[in-house]
Write a protein that binds this DNA or RNA. Sequence first.
RNA 1: GCGGAUGUGGUGAAAUUGGUAGACACGCCAGACUUAGGAUCUGGUGCCGCGAGGCAUGUAGGUUCGAGUCCUAUCAUCCGCACCA
Length: 927
Amino acid sequence: MIMEYNFRQLERKWQDHWVKSGAYKVSNDSSKPKCYVLDMFPYPSGAGLHVGHPLGFIASDIYSRYKRLKGYNVLHPMGYDAFGLPAEQYAIETGQHPAVTTEANIRTFRKQLDNIGFSYDWSREINTSEPAYYKWTQHIFLQLFGSWYNRHAAKAESIETLVRIFESEGNLHQECPGDRGLRFSADTWNGWTYEEQQQTLMEYRLAYLAYAEVNWCPALGTVLANDEVINGVSERGGHPVIKKKMRQWFLRITEYADRLLEGLETVQFSEAMKDMQRNWIGKSQGAEIKFNVAGSLENIVVYTTRPDTIFGVDFMVLAPEHELVESITTDEQSQAVSDYREYVQSRSERERMAEVKQITGCFTGAYAVNPFDGRKIPIWISEYVLAGYGTGAIMAVPCGDARDFGFAKHFNIPITNIIGDAFNGEEANATKDAVLQNSDFLNGKPMREAMGIVAEKIEQLGLGRRQVNFKMRDAGFSRQRYWGEPFPIVFRNGVPEAMDVADLPLELPHVENYRPGEEGEGPLANVTEWVNLPSEAGTSLRRETNTMPGYAGSSWYFLRYMDPRNAETFCDRKVSDYWGQVDLYIGGTEHAVGHLLYSRLWTKVLFDLGLIGFEEPYRKLVNQGMITGSSRLVYRVRGTNQFVSAGLKDKYETDELHVDVNIVDGVELDTEAFKKWRPDYANAQFILEDGKYFCGTLSEKMSKSKFNTVNPDMLVDKFGADTFRMYEMFLGPVEQSKPWETKGIEGVHRFLKKTWRLFFDENKGLIVNNEAPGAEELKTLHRTIRKIDDDTERLSFNTAVSAFMVCVNELTDQKCSKKAVLEQLLVLLTPYAPHMCEELWQAIGNSGSILDAAFPVFEEKYVVESVKEYPVSVNGKLRTTINIALDAEAAEVEQIALANEVVQKWLEGKQPKKIIFVKGKMINIVI
RNA sequence: GCGGAUGUGGUGAAAUUGGUAGACACGCCAGACUUAGGAUCUGGUGCCGCGAGGCAUGUAGGUUCGAGUCCUAUCAUCCGCACCA
């Protein structure tokens, strides 16, 4: 029997025991209600875990264990998002196969995770880079490839249904999402060749090939998603990114824009998260309006959200890349226009972004005609109009739009005021509340009302139509990389065809070198024997050389955990019907518009195709805050090896250096450890304050180069996993970001030792007895039951930890060693400190595991009070407190309060105007 | 510029519905025990004031018997998006 709290020994013992007994194995077959608790699975990077990573893992683990005690069948799995760029970069540098480094990294992660005592069912572990997993990623990709979005039914359907529609009525009722102008009849369709038909179907498929400008990063040799490009440079490495046309796979996520928006109403995400997604989707309602070009047969369609301002249009602006620019430009302006277009072309994305404020543009010489009043307005081109949004052309209303206003001022274009006093001539006013003037039939109408009137009129007169636009683009789904899922596609004479499902997985071939191919082709292009398949004469069979992006495997992984070893399908329908949505999903905010959006899309497609029974993957999402590093700084007197304490540094000329946080206690530097830290500092001298060396502090991202990373292994070794778990929770609300501070962990450690001493006396040994608990002990216990139950359910773990401290402090004061009380406390505490609780559970004579104990039931009767210490205020200011029976009625209470000598003193003999009495809360006397 | 979040002691924070602001810890101060200890225990600790008392939840107003909590304005910090017509 272990007498003292020997956490090292007992934590090892129980971790081994739980593994041996299969304590965390979860069955898909249970009569209990289900609960699915999921962490965003990590990318197994070479750096391993720092103290920031486990925050969310610990929270979800506590919640899982709590739900299990509450009688749920809890699915709580873990795995690895193992495809990705860093492993490939490392392979390029060292020649080591990414699979090898990934596996080594996974082993490190696993060891670190095991140290903390998580309740994962490791028999369900998945790894997105294993063929047995990505077989199904490929399979689901083929589902996307084999589907189209039926806008009438608002759902995805098999492409076969579309072929049947084309055969009987062409595409007359099925607007083509890839090419809005495309119209063909059944006869046309039936007369087309196979290639022509396939080309058309490609314009409808949910996973499709298209030539498109992509973010090409020459330094990384790959194409990046919009969300991987930050201010014109790559998120990883900060390399410049340019536009390049390439044939790429895309997911037609834009067809799901509305459903992705609507779905947000049905899930519990934070407002911030929902807003980020809404913002990314960027829905706007407006109208497309056709303007004729004067003296030409051409017309230009503009997109506007403000059709009401149609009479304030003073000019029109086209994107420099707009297809009509060449044909409408007059001879006089042709040189200027082509110079301007060349200038725009020469500017990198980065420059354009950096110089947003700069106003540039060029007049085309042409004029458009306002369809309502026949006014001729000049047509300009400018880079502030984007080719990829709306129609790539705008009607400019300088009195109502800041950019149009700036443009008009800059180029001296006269401004028409249609909003009277609301426009001051100094800056545009984008109001929707003004009353229109100078606006013909709209004069006197409020703008909001006019929007509808104009839109109506435009449609009546055939001048255009109402139109909804989205900022969101279709998602690029090709990466010119090696370390990703190969596409299960074969090009037969250039026509992409799905591989036979029976031939999956299409495994990644071994390559000699991981460098990208020429012209942005992926490394797979170099493996010619893999790329070119044997075929009959006259037929070429070629594989796709791109691979899928990082978010492919993570878009559906939550389904695989349910049925991880199924060889027949990605997840049996009965099993996904049982587990359903993830009930609690915990992870960082950085995936707001990447992973979460794509994952929601895949889930909706699988739902539409009848492969699963729900269309939102995550019922509730909680974003854990980021734990930043708290760096420590030392100040070296310039040109010396002398270090001055922070308080005295201003007296010297110093250089600021980062020092390893692990050799600093709070802000006090361990000077001996510092000397040993690096050879250069072996002879360091110190200028001390009060005999101590104090460091400066700085809060910044944890990174090795700043020496501010704290490794959980070290803390677990020093204080134990239970202390570490509780301390991470005690730091503050899970969702809050905060700098890591190791100081304070001892308070939690002391708490656990104090808890231990309720059970063991260092001289007498086990002191738990079978006496019946008294009223005070039961009150303490039941208050704690209520608080822990509430707090854990609402994920307020920091307050739960403090409630445990209050409880143990009280029981210690009560000298309570009664089994009936302590046993229940252990069950409450075991989600937080599982190792110690299991040990004590066994020590007090239980044979089974505490993992399967029942959560204590709160009983009101033990916590009811008969007397309340009422706060008594006079004119809202607290003056005293009085103990009064809780069931006392107002009249009685008023009498007692008024008789109180403190109250008498403040009344100064006056009569109170009013007495406010809230039963069980407070008394306020108003004079 | 747009959107979101957050501002409370020396520090991390608590206050779930408007009702005793600062629970629980860290740190600090004093003491006990032990001959050193980074062990354990006890007491104290928002600020000003000898005291009665006064002042305190970024700032300024407002609603209310009563505001950290609701409303209006404003400042600061952080995050996301950003020439999206």
